[in-house]
Design a protein around this nucleic acid. Sequence first.
DNA 1: GTTTTTATTAGGAATAATTCCTAATTAAGT
DNA 2: ACTTAATTAGGAATTATTCCTAATAAAAAC
Lengths: 141, 141
Amino acid sequence: MQQLEELITSLREDGFRITPQRIAIVDYLLKTEEHPSAEHIHKTIQKKYPMMSLSTVYKTLDLLKEKKLVNEIEVEGESRFDAHTDEHINLVCMNCGKIEDVDEDSLKEIQSRVARKSKFLIVKGSFEMFGYCNICKSRFN
Amino acid sequence: MQQLEELITSLREDGFRITPQRIAIVDYLLKTEEHPSAEHIHKTIQKKYPMMSLSTVYKTLDLLKEKKLVNEIEVEGESRFDAHTDEHINLVCMNCGKIEDVDEDSLKEIQSRVARKSKFLIVKGSFEMFGYCNICKSRFN
DNA sequence: GTTTTTATTAGGAATAATTCCTAATTAAGT
DNA sequence: ACTTAATTAGGAATTATTCCTAATAAAAAC
C-alpha cells in the first residue's frame, strides 16, 4: 500500500516515532470507507492487537488531525474520522449512522467566495447532509 | 415581537402547554445572533428567572428541534442552537467559538442535486466553515 | 372561580464521549 | 548494547447530555 508508506514517512520526517499502534490506526483509516468513531477504530484494531488502548487511539487521531491527514466530523454526540481529506459532502444516515461521501465540485468555489466576502480567515469546511440511507429509508416513508 | 407570538401559537395549536420557561427560551433564541449552547441559554435566562433548570432547556430545545423551529450544529463537543432555520453556512471561530451566518444561494441547488444523484433520502443540510473571526485572526498569522 | 387531569418542571443522579494523569515501555539516536 | 525522551496502557477525571421522579402548574371540565 503506497499511501501508507507515504504517510508513515511524512510522520517520521516530522520527528514522530513510528509505532505499531500508529501504523495500525493509519492503515485502518486508509482502508475503510465507514468513517469510524474512535471507539470503533479501537474495537476493530483490538481484535488483532489486544492491548491497544483507547487513549492511544484518541492521541493518534489528534496527531493525524493536526497534520491534516484525517478529517473529523461530529455527528450525534460523537466524532467520526475519515482519511479522505479533500473537501466533499458527507451523507449521514440518521437511523443507522452510516456515512457516505459525495463529491461536489462547487464546494471549492463556495469556500473561496465565502473566504472573500466574510471577515473570517477560513481554514476548512465541513459539509454534512442528514437523511436516511438506501437501506433505512424504506422504513421512513 | 411578531415572530414570538407566531411560534407560541403554533406550539399551542400542536397541543403543547405554553409555560414561562418555553416563552423565555424561544424569546431568547429569536433575539440573539450568537448561536448559544444549552448551557449559555440556561445561564442567560437564569439571570432573570433563577429557578430555570438546565434540563428544561434541553427538553425545550428537543421540542423546538423536532418542530424545526431551531437548528442544531455540533461544534467542538457541544451543540449550538440557532432560530434561523433556512439553509445557510455557519462560520465558526476556532479560537473564541463565535459563530456567524453567511447566506449562500447555491446550497439549495447542491442539496437538490445530491438528493437526486445519491441513494439517500435527504432531510436537511448542515454547512460549516471553520477558521478565525475578524478579531481572533490577527493572532494567528 | 374551583377542581381535575396530566404535561411540564426542578434538581440531581446516571450515562457516555473525551481528556487527563502517570508509571512502564520502547523507538531511535549514539 | 546503552541512553533518553516520546509514547503507551490503563484507569481516573471531566464534561455535555440524558434520565428519573416528586412537586408544580397549564388548561380543560365543571
